[in-house]
Structures are given as structure tokens and as C-alpha cells.
């Protein structure tokens, strides 16, 4: 068996036994249920808190509101939880020394990085899948209005953005010693991408739109082709960051 396979198995077992998988699945499941429910209940709740006698026209909620909740929650809380859960995945092994026994048995360092990234991707994918399927089911149940389009593609864009941030996390975790340091670097990258949005010339390339413009896609206000360049760049970014992580990690004295 090759080292990637062996170490990937170990990472999956670790995710199950340290409850990483459980956390991600339940949190994303919760989002899946909450998204349509919040969309449904928000107008009612608002109405209750309005002063007596005041009448405003509250829009009737639709499936679009439910998906808007999905993209808001998964990009914010969802991604934060995933990054937090994985922040220590390499740093802890290095500070505790658990890699030493395996590296001295000839475990290749490429396998360590790639298997860890693959395990992160696997859990992130499961989370996104669970959350989007549950949201989809309840949305169809509550709002059978057929107003939402390009769902699979919009979710894919968000997934890819998450994959890009995880690659960034893996790379930064080879640069700094502490798990918090790698989180700070990853956070800084997100801030940086947000700043780049200010420049109109950069915008059509910025991977950030993969997580910010999903609703335009669902409401058919943007063509899918709008995302071609950010997708290409995010994909390249993932590959480049993982390769860089391997290069840095190979030189690291442990």
C-alpha cells in the first residue's frame, strides 16, 4: 500500500475518533434544517415585533430566501467551524512529535501533506453535501416555487472556495508553529481578497466571488460563465498551495 493511502486512512480514523466528523456533520446538518426554517419564520417574527397598528408590506418568503440563508451560513459559520476544526491538524503533530515515529519509518512527507489535505477535503465535501441536500429537501417542502436555478453549480462554487481556503490553511500550517498562527494567516488571506474586490480590474478574477455571488447565480442575475476565471484561479491556487506546502514541509527540520 502506498503511503498516501495508508496515511489518508489514518487521517479518516482520526477524524472519526476525535469527533471531527461528528462536529462537521451535525453542524452542517443543523444549517441544512435552519436555512429554510429561518427563511420561513423571519417575516412572521418581524410582524410580531412590529408596533401595534403599524402595517408594512412584508415580502412573502420564497426558496430564494432559503438559499440565501444557506450561502450566508455556510460561508460564514460553516467555513469558520471547518477551519477551526482543522487548524491544528499538522501543528499538533509536529509539536507533540507524533510524526517522528512514522517519518523515521520512511513515511514520505508528500504523503503527510497530501493525505491531510485530502482528508480535509473529504470532510468539507461531506459537510457541504449534507447541508445542501437537507436545505434542498426542506426548501422544496416549504417553497415549491421553482424560483431557484443553477443550484448544483452555485454549491460547487462555494465548495471550491472552501477547498481553496483549506489549501491555504495547509500551506500556512507548514510556515508557522502554532495552529492559531495558521488560522491568522488564512484569515488575513480572506481579508486581502476582500480588499482586492475594491479594484474593478481584479474582480472578474477574484476567487472570493465564488462565495459571495452565489445568489446572483441562483436568481439568474449572473451567467455561469462569469465564474469561469475565478474557478480556474481557485483551482490553480489549490494545486499551487499544496505543492508549496510539500516543498516547505520537506525542508522542515523536525
Amino acid at each position: 500500500m502506498n503511503h498516501f493511502h495508508v496515511f489518508f486512512k489514518k487521517e479518516l480514523r482520526e477524524s472519526v475518533r476525535t469527533h471531527r466528523l461528528l462536529i462537521i456533520l451535525t453542524i452542517f446538518f443543523m444549517f441544512g434544517v435552519m436555512n429554510p426554517l429561518t427563511a420561513k419564520l423571519t417575516p412572521d417574527l418581524l410582524a410580531k415585533f412590529l408596533p401595534e397598528g403599524m402595517i408594512i408590506e412584508l415580502p412573502v418568503p420564497s426558496s430564494l430566501d432559503s438559499w440565501a440563508q444557506f450561502f450566508k451560513n455556510v460561508t460564514q459559520m460553516g467555513l469558520i467551524v471547518v477551519l477551526l476544526v482543522f487548524s491544528g491538524i499538522l501543528a499538533n503533530e509536529i509539536t507533540q512529535g507524533t510524526l517522528i515515529n512514522l517519518l523515521t519509518k520512511g513515511l514520505s512527507r508528500e504523503a503527510v501533506i497530501t493525505a491531510k489535505y485530502a482528508a480535509m477535503l473529504a470532510l468539507w465535501s461531506m459537510g457541504v453535501l449534507v447541508s445542501s441536500l437537507v436545505t434542498w429537501g426542506y426548501t422544496v417542502y416549504l417553497f415549491p416555487d421553482g424560483k431557484s436555478h443553477n443550484l448544483v453549480f452555485a454549491v460547487f462554487c462555494l465548495w471550491l472556495f472552501g477547498a481553496f481556503l483549506l489549501a491555504q490553511l495547509v500551506f500556512s500550517t507548514t510556515l508557522v508553529k502554532s495552529s492559531y498562527g495558521s488560522l491568522i494567516i488564512t484569515g488575513a488571506v480572506v481579508v486581502f481578497l476582500n480588499i482586492l474586490q475594491v479594484f474593478p480590474g481584479v474582480q472578474p478574477w477574484n476567487p472570493l466571488v465564488l462565495a459571495t455571488h452565489n445568489m446572483e447565480l441562483i436568481g439568474q442575475n449572473l451567467e455561469p460563465s462569469f465564474f469561469a476565471r475565478p474557478i480556474g484561479l481557485a483551482f490553480l491556487g489549490c494545486c499551487l498551495l499544496v505543492v508549496l506546502a510539500v516543498v516547505v514541509f520537506r525542508k522542515k527540520q523536525i
Binding site: M1, H3, V6, F7, K10, R13, E14, R17, T18, Q96, G97, T98, I100, N101, L102, T104, K105, G106, L107
Partner: peptide, 25 residues
């Protein structure tokens, strides 16, 4: 190699750990 303070994955059992090592070797 036996490091001065060997560290293991606490969530594994001894046989599982040796199996992991054996597969890597």
C-alpha cells in the same frame, strides 16, 4: 528509532498503531 519521549496517537490501540507503522514500513 526510539525518540526520547515517544509520542503516539492517543485514540489508537497498540495493535492498530503497530499496524499503521507496519503499513508505512
Amino acid at each position: 528509532f526510539l525518540p526520547d519521549v515517544p509520542e503516539f496517537y492517543g485514540y489508537m490501540r497498540p495493535r492498530e498503531y503497530l499496524q499503521l507503522c507496519g503499513e508505512i514500513a
